[in-house]
Design a protein around this nucleic acid. Structure first.
Lengths: 245, 245
DNA sequence: CTCGGCAAATAAGTATGACGTTTTGGTTTA
DNA sequence: TAAACCAAAACGTCATACTTATTTGCCGAG
């Protein structure tokens, strides 16, 4: 057969995974979640095979993965049909990433922010009751880091502390499902920073709130931790109304 | 090769999907989530191949799906290594189902209930602002259905209304991510009913709360809808402390 | 004795051809 | 006209050959 891409450094775009499997998946996944194939459209395996110049093995494995995300359903004699968005496993990190990278980004960002505003306050309340001393220390450290980097064009460093702060809260909640949202929060915060006008420093009020949350957790004041985090969440929602369509 | 399972009705256990792929997946998935293979253990494809008497293709597709759930990671020259629970995609419906069916059930049930207690009040608040008249009607209908079936050993019919009620709230919230938790809630409620002593009728207080939530949503009172749902959630948490280890 | 590189072994990754199975839809027949 | 039947289409499964990355460990240089 024809030799393709034999090792030369022609790494295109921003996908991870260098295998053929990953390459096809990172082409089809985003395309589907972007709505390029409207619900109900059918893909045939041999068509994909031809389009990407890969073998059936690869295509079939990709289809299986897409199927496991409920993006498509494969049926005999009919082909691989694209499922409507309501069916998608919207909690799958890859689906989230794909949608954040596509035209659905604003809507997705809003969904995720609402999700955050529901989860994080409860997580903070739990963290106040369960956080280890080490976690309390981390929390304070990152809150102070946010203060230190909140002025003078240090958004990138600020972002790191911000993400770490929320990650610690989610992990300290002691709930595995909350903990798993750390990546989602990171994605949202990163997206916000990188799409915002890069000249505006973070809202000082938000910074202060983070410090006070760390304080409340350290003092095991669950009520206050929850209430303060709810304020942070409200801020995030308000910010969204300014930025998103 | 040897002919295996050529169509005779030897359907074992409670898994859906009759393909070989589904059969192997429904054997390996539960085993891994149950902890039968401790994190770090390695599975070799040809070993699985032999154990289940299926071909390489099938095994590879199963591995790819397990990999997409972050239950395992496949590396060349090493094999397929089982990942630690912190890595698992705990929002994948199948992972949830598998864990609920295994020894991790109590812990999983607790996680899910905490998740519910964070999400559902916020969802109810949103539903109060966004629910269509039709959804309000559904809500009332199911709340009344719960009342009607709350006495006299009609737990199964009660359960149906209970599930439907929560599903409508989650869908009416207008948030796709909330909506997708409908199945999770259904799973939790079903599990609770079927593991509880089947002779105790539902708590009348909880029933009343549902009726009042429907009322609040119908009257577009977001605050009240949220507060009442928070009470329902608190009840579910309290109930859990009685039932779970 | 240690370090560093080269070579062989190993297991996953990919390609391909053959066959089985289910669904669909048209065609034939009562 | 309606029911039964047959054939084509697409996925599902199997088997096998070959490729590639990674690890292990041997061996020689320092």
């Amino acid at each position: 057969m024809d030799k393709r891409a034999q090792g030369e450094p022609e790494e295109q775009g921003g996908q991870r995974g260098s295998g053929l499997h990953a390459r096809v998946l990172d082409a089809l996944g985003p395309a589907i979640t972007a709505g390029d194939y409207p619900p109900g459209s059918v893909l045939r395996t041999d068509e994909i095979e031809e389009r990407f110049e890969v073998s059936r093995s690869v295509v079939r494995e990709v289809i299986r993965v897409l199927e496991s995300m409920h993006l498509v359903a494969s049926r005999r004699r009919v082909g691989v049909t694209v499922l409507p968005p309501e069916e998608w496993n919207v909690y799958d990190p890859r689906v989230i990433r794909w949608r954040l990278a596509g035209p659905d980004r604003p809507r997705q960002l809003r969904s995720l922010t609402v999700l955050r505003s529901a989860i994080e306050p409860v997580a903070a309340g739990l963290a106040a009751r369960l956080a280890t001393p080490a976690q309390c220390a981390e929390l304070t450290e990152h809150a102070l880091g946010m203060v230190a980097t909140s002025r003078g064009q240090q958004l990138e460093r600020y972002l790191i502390h911000d993400i770490a702060f929320h990650r610690v809260i989610l992990r300290a909640s002691g709930n595995e499902m909350f903990a798993r949202l750390g990546d989602v929060v990171a994605e949202v915060l990163t997206g916000r920073t990188h799409h915002q006008v890069m000249f505006t420093d973070p809202d000082p009020a938000a910074v202060t709130l983070h410090v006070r949350v760390a304080e409340a957790v350290r003092e095991r004041d669950a009520e206050r931790a929850e209430a303060l985090t709810r304020e942070i969440a409200a801020g995030a929602m308000a910010e969204l109304d300014v930025l998103a369509p």
